[in-house]
């Protein structure tokens, strides 16, 4: 990141106590953190619902059926976005660690992460919502 002349007025204008607003790297950090914590919280819930199969397979089926309704399907699409963004951005982090020269292309790498996330998750989300779109939703 270059401390270009454009930064100086903004820094001077910022009153004390204002939240730091960084550039692309700051957004990547926030996105990585939020997506990671969300997927982790889902993992905790998911351990409980899968383990129901050991208590009683019918109980598992009853609870599991809920994942088929629209609201939870939308949640699953969100999960897909979070997981794929986190995975691709994690790969970007590892790449920059291995090849420090890549820092110069930081913004372009992040753009690639966002582009690939959208390019895979929009079709993926469509597949998840397909039973709803086609009106064959059961649960």
């Amino acid at each position: 990141m270059s401390a270009g002349p454009d930064l100086a007025p903004a820094v001077r204008a910022a009153p004390a106590g204002t939240v730091y607003r960084g550039r692309s790297g700051q957004w990547a950090f926030i996105g990585h953190r939020i997506s990671g914590v969300l997927v982790f919280l889902f993992l905790l819930l998911h351990i409980v619902d899968v383990s129901l199969i050991n208590i009683d397979p019918h109980l598992y089926d009853e609870v599991h059926e809920l994942y088929g309704n629209v609201v939870l399907r939308l949640f699953e699409v969100g999960l897909l976005f979070a997981l794929v963004f986190h995975a691709l951005n994690g790969i970007r982090i590892v790449m920059v660690d291995l090849f420090p020269g890549a820092v110069r292309r930081e913004r372009r790498l992040l753009a690639a992460v966002v582009f690939l996330t959208l390019a895979t998750c929009i079709p993926g989300g469509y597949v998840i919502l397909l039973p709803f779109i086609e009106g064959t939703l059961t649960g």
């Binding site: 397979p57 089926d61 994942y67 088929g68 999960l79 790969i91 998840i128």
Partner: peptide, 27 residues
């Protein structure tokens, strides 16, 4: 672990949500 999870987590999600529909992944 992150690099290993790229394969494990994404494959798991693909099997349970994309290749099969969620409602098919019953007991």
């Amino acid at each position: 672990s992150g690099l290993v999870l790229v394969f494990l987590a994404l494959l798991h999600f693909a099997i349970t949500h994309i290749v099969n529909d969620v409602v098919e992944t019953d007991a």
